[in-house]
């Protein structure tokens, strides 16, 4: 069976092409789909789509809606207004949802991450924030990530390497939990196996800036929901998929594991 992936776009998303290409390179059918294709009646018949046409949804990187209000806030408001119930059902059914960079910000604003409640995968209001980087700068460069997931996240199950290199490119990526409840959140995340990637230095040590590019709490770079099928991360695996994207001899590089893992999960499941 064909694995079908939708990479959702609206105005200002700009990583959909690389993301689509990564999935296609591994034999999945992927296409960039404008959010309007899911609900607008102004769409040509052959371009009308439904979330249920796909096995996997991706919120790509970019600057959706110009990062107005807050990064991801407007895209998430639009998803809430037209897609919330379907998306909630989609997640409950176990279909995977990925958010990269701006996509992670969208999933956080949507209340889909940290996603502690399996029965209510989209919380009524955000439970965490991706705040302005401590450096107050747009941080655009390679980062080293330690993979710490013990098997819950369906997007990294095929990742056997301990440390990978994916580039970051964001101004709002600092993981912030409600003040005074950081430790409680952390304990839950660890206990539920929801922590996926943490920023490290080239030797694999947890380090502060510049290795942690934004000042994220506990060096968190990526987390999944309690069920393991919603995954958000600030670094860009789709920008480290082919060796040539990162100046390497190898044909494919570290980024492939994310796409390979979810395709493998879907092949076994559906």
């Amino acid at each position: 069976m064909d694995i079908r992936v939708a990479v959702l776009r609206i105005e200002g998303t700009n990583c959909e092409d690389e993301t689509v290409r990564a999935f296609r390179a591994l034999g999945a059918y992927a296409e960039a789909v404008h959010l309007k294709q899911f609900y607008s009646d102004m769409i040509r018949d052959d371009e009308v789509r439904s979330i249920w046409d796909y096995h996997c949804l991706v919120f790509p990187g970019g600057f959706s809606a110009g990062d107005y209000v807050r990064a991801g806030a407007i895209f998430s408001a639009r998803v809430k207004s037209v897609l919330r119930r379907d998306l909630e059902e989609f997640i409950k059914e176990g279909y995977p949802v990925l958010g990269i960079c701006n996509g992670f910000q969208i999933l956080v604003e949507l209340g889909a991450l940290p996603g502690f409640d399996e029965d209510k995968p989209i919380a009524d209001e955000p439970q965490m924030a991706l705040a302005i980087n401590d450096s107050n700068r747009f941080e655009c460069r390679p980062t080293f990530l330690k993979h710490e997931n013990r098997g819950k996240c369906v997007f990294t199950r095929k990742l056997k390497k301990e440390i990978v290199m994916y580039p970051v490119a964001h101004a709002e990526g600092k993981v912030v939990f409600p003040r005074g409840r950081e430790e409680e959140y952390l304990e839950r995340l660890i206990e539920n196996d929801q922590i996926v990637f943490r920023y490290v230095d080239p030797e694999g040590n947890y380090s502060s800036y510049p290795w942690n590019p934004n000042g994220s709490f506990y060096n968190i770079a990526g987390i999944c929901n309690v069920k393991g099928n919603v995954f958000g991360l600030m670094p860009h695996p789709e920008r480290a998929f082919f060796g040539w994207q990162v100046g390497r001899e190898e044909e494919v590089f570290d980024g492939k594991y994310v796409f390979e893992s979810v395709i493998d999960y879907l092949r076994k499941f559906y």
Binding site: V69, E125, P126, V176
Partner: peptide
């Protein structure tokens, strides 16, 4: 504010 303008966490 709750739905769009603010993120209550920060």
């Amino acid at each position: 504010c709750k739905k769009l303008l603010a993120n209550p966490v920060i």
